[in-house]
Amino acid sequence: MSALESLDARGLLCPLPVIRTQDRIKNLQPGELLEVVATDPGTMQDIPAWCRVHGHELVTEETVDNESGEGLVYRFEIRVNA
């Protein structure tokens, strides 16, 4: 299943990726999927923790090695809770 909405949080440092995710999810309906891409390794801790705190489901969590030499990219898919 592909994400409906996507958030590019690359280059942002925590807690900004979490803040942007929170702001985006506010405007989504329960059950919708949001994809978040980030470069701050801190998001690997913070995005899952934020999802747990708010009861959103973390569907995907992966680390992608970016070919363009930008380093690692962290990708998440979050399903908005009911």
Binding site: C14, G42, Q45, D46, A49
Partner: peptide
């Protein structure tokens, strides 16, 4: 310490 957002924790 592991990196974490203290407020979230």
């Amino acid at each position: 310490k592991p990196k974490r957002n203290n407020a979230l924790w």
